[in-house]
Design a protein around this nucleic acid. Structure first.
Lengths: 351, 351
DNA sequence: TGCGATTTGAGGTGCGCAACTCAAAAATTG
DNA sequence: CAATTTTTGAGTTGCGCACCTCAAATCGCA
């Protein structure tokens, strides 16, 4: 199926010759510079098509000789998953250096809209592009739009702000993630036994982050549609904090004798495991949570958690950098490569 | 935590200056050319460390001005998953051209060891590197070792030949994949009801491909350890052919009144779905299979299959090319990026 | 026809590195 | 010590492209 077996890839010089124009003109057309008549431009474009010309990536990059500065705005406060992302960005240091890309990680309180907005407003001029964990808040949306207005490339990370003008979102479909968790809970519990209706507890981080809200929504959807025999308890907010989660689950266990499962939409699952262990109910109440951390890995192995719904922080860190680079350098984004999967992790397919 | 805020990355020229040697000497050391005293080499290495020097990828690639030819040896015969891999390789055409990499896809009968070995023996000279779906056979192992001996980079794809000297394997851990399928079947079936012991049918492709054998092994392991109440039927071989599989499952249904689940280690799941539909047993017998194709996607959506264990052919195609390129160009392989995940796909997290 | 505006060609420079040559300097040897 | 070998420096070339200048050619229009 190969057309031109002729090995050496064509250069811009070849294109110019094939089009019957000078190198300068071919260059003007290919790089969209002005001062070329429509007719000549067409000749060049045809030659590009015919020869399947692609500028050699290395030569183009070298000649352009630009360097880039990216900012990555992450929530501070020891969130394990966010630390994983930061570590994975740092792990790319060599790769980034070799491409003249400088990345600065900015830690901030993403729950404080004013603070985050101020942080964002300080970025233009100092950076060419930003990735941020977005808070779904009008002020943040406006701040993002201002960044785009200022000519920066902006991508959201992990939690999206779809109504803003951000160019790209690096993260999972959180409704699908919630639905997946719902299906796992429903199927793992199995068909109802007799007339007893089991109750399912929902532990969540905070109402203001879009990702958690979407997960709750997807989870509720599946349970309502497919497993109507299950009673969904009102979600309790533990702000991703293990200690708060422990306390909340203690109370949940005390109040709900028919509790059969717990779903945690966010971090701090270890608190849930502790509360269950105290009550001697580990492995007797089905638990499904999110994200693979040392703590959740342990609880998956010991059976406290039956499954995790996860996204790969390494993939996200690499994808984010690639996307930012493609955006600022005007390159194409390989959609399939940048699609972040909703992973189901059982004890048996732990990475 | 940044050390040298000084923005512009150091060049080899800077390294030479810092080490107090000439550019030529610095170049000799960095590129491992002979004729440099140990003492001088040390000085240069120290300067490289101190300045955190990395050759600019674009400049190095441009200067080397080499082109590469890769061969990808895939099984012919319309296997959907393999076609997906081929398509994903072709989809990288532009990316590959821009890096002077030519890829040729070679279709062959990987089940025929002699034919495959002959095909492999013809590669040296014409190609710099090979990726192949390996048959676990002494003759193939020898053929792979010959390729490596001839100086080619060799990676196995999808099915490994660990005892050969191939430099890398691009694919999933098939034992883990089988275990995952086993856990899904066990958990989805739920606790035993009364004294009835359900039977689990196993449909497999062929004994000679290592990937299928490993999946059967992992599946059997989990069922034996965790779900002893389930009876495992003797695996039946359908050679990944839907028609054969349909016939085999027809017979299985006739012979096994207590059949509760079917696991297919390979392709051709659609035949299983058809046999179940004929018998009016779709959605009543739990099915778990492998790989996401149009057919399995449909059966996942209509509930015939409860889950799929999958690997991402796009990821594998891209990873394979990256790894081959890194191997021939002497670059580093980013292990985390190249790790292929064992994915669990439910109706809710379909990509 | 002649004028100015537009289009095109020719050529140069630099990006950072790999790879090479040749001569000079230093170290090693008999 | 001289003769040799080893090490080092200085310099060149080319990779393919982006980006620039300047002059020549062509065009449209009055």
């Amino acid at each position: 199926m190969n057309n031109h077996a002729n090995d050496a890839p064509p250069t811009l010089r070849d294109v110019a010759a094939a089009a019957g124009v000078s190198l300068a003109t071919a260059d003007r057309v290919v790089n969209g510079r002005p001062g070329v008549s429509a007719k000549t431009a067409r000749k060049v474009h045809e030659a590009v098509q015919r020869l399947a010309f692609r500028p050699l990536a290395a030569a183009a990059e070298l000649a352009r000789s630009r360097s880039w500065r990216f900012a990555v705005v992450l929530p501070g406060g020891g969130n394990r998953f966010m630390m994983d992302i930061a570590d994975n960005v740092r792990a790319q240091a060599d790769w980034l250096r070799a491409r003249r890309i400088g990345v600065e990680i900015v830690e901030t309180d993403v729950f404080d809209a004013d603070r985050l907005a101020a942080e964002l407003a300080a970025l233009p001029g100092r950076f060419d592009a930003v990735a941020l964990v977005a808070l779904d808040h009008p002020r943040i949306r406006a701040a993002i739009d201002d960044l785009v207005e200022a000519g920066m490339a902006v991508v959201t990370l992990v939690s999206d702000a779809p109504s803003s003008r951000r160019q790209h979102y690096v993260g999972i479909d959180n409704i699908a993630a919630g639905r997946t968790a719902g299906s796992l809970v429903g199927r793992f519990l199995g068909p109802p036994r007799g007339n007893e209706r089991g109750a399912v507890g929902i532990v969540t981080g905070a109402g203001s982050l879009r990702d958690h809200a979407e997960r709750r929504f997807g989870f509720g959807q599946v349970l309502a549609e497919e497993y109507p025999q299950l009673i969904r308890l009102t979600p309790v907010e533990g702000r991703d904090d293990p200690d708060r989660n422990r306390e909340l689950v203690r109370r949940m266990l005390a109040d709900t004798p028919n509790l059969v499962a717990i779903y945690n939409t966010g971090e701090g699952s270890v608190g849930i495991g502790e509360a269950l262990a105290e009550a001697g109910l580990a492995r007797r109440i089905l638990c499904v949570g999110h994200e693979l951390t040392p703590a959740t890995r342990r609880m998956l192995l010991d059976g406290t958690f039956a499954a995790l719904v996860a996204q790969d922080p390494g993939h996200e860190a690499r994808s984010m950098v690639r996307v930012l680079h493609a955006l600022v350098a005007g390159q194409e984004i390989v959609a399939a490569q940048e699609h972040i999967r909703v992973q189901v992790i059982l004890r048996d397919n732990l990475p």
